[in-house]
Amino acid sequence: MKKYIYILSLSTIVFACGSDHNANSNEESNTTANVDDEASKKRANKAKMVFYTVPSPYETALIFERSGVGYNIGVLNSIDNVNNYSTNVKQALNFGVYGADLSYANIFDQSQQCMFYMNCAKKLADGLGITSAFDAETMERIEANMNNRDSLMNIINDSYWIADSYLKENEQDFLSALIISGGWIEGLYLGTVTLDRDKPSDELMKSIADQKYSLDNLIGLLALYENPEVVSIKTKLEGLKISFDKITVKESATSVSNEGEMATLDGGNTLNFTKENIIEIADNIKTIRNEIIE
């Protein structure tokens, strides 16, 4: 909402801006104002804009797959549940959940499951009024690329981007925040649910612990909204944060090496955790996830 208010305030004198440089340079355009006018001085004093983003469910699924998580269809949200979500809040949260399930199925090349979850996502998108996210053309592209993991993932990401931007455009950005939350919660759940509680792999535990950072970003995003449903999800995630906060951080600077074809970052903070910390996180995320899919 704050972001919206910011854009609203900036937009008061800038209605008809075109999308190219020429349009912006037109001195007769309504998009311009004198540099030394009062509005410019006020703008100079205003606070910096802060955005919050979290890794996409696809990125999270990829991380867990690299950490050794296998495919288990039984842990995904049932496709039969799609008919249970009648409110826009439930639809938004589970649109995110099914997006994560879709990413997970895609990473493990489960084409048939992808199609099922795609239909669930489409149904919820339609329910939210975002028919453009999975329109006929998109569905045709999906079918044509069903066996091409990377292309399919790009199409799915585009659809979720269309949904995100549609909701922001239509003053429903709190729903967008809920979609992101649903996707993140399901992504973490899928990473933790198959954890071997007796002998968890170090790599998987590290990947779970790393989600500490994303959780902070997600809570920062949700804190922008006063909608009671968003506040409710934020409160649940703050409970999860208590578990994540038991993971201690040893601060260290990040190093940059410019050898090779691109810069490489290494070092940075080190997370210290125990098996019990990770199991506690797994238990908490399971509770939160089961509440949102019911």
Binding site: Y6, L10, T53, M153, W161
Partner: peptide
């Protein structure tokens, strides 16, 4: 691959 979130203003 982008992350599916609109971050522009």
């Amino acid at each position: 691959t982008h992350n599916g979130q609109l971050t522009s203003a």
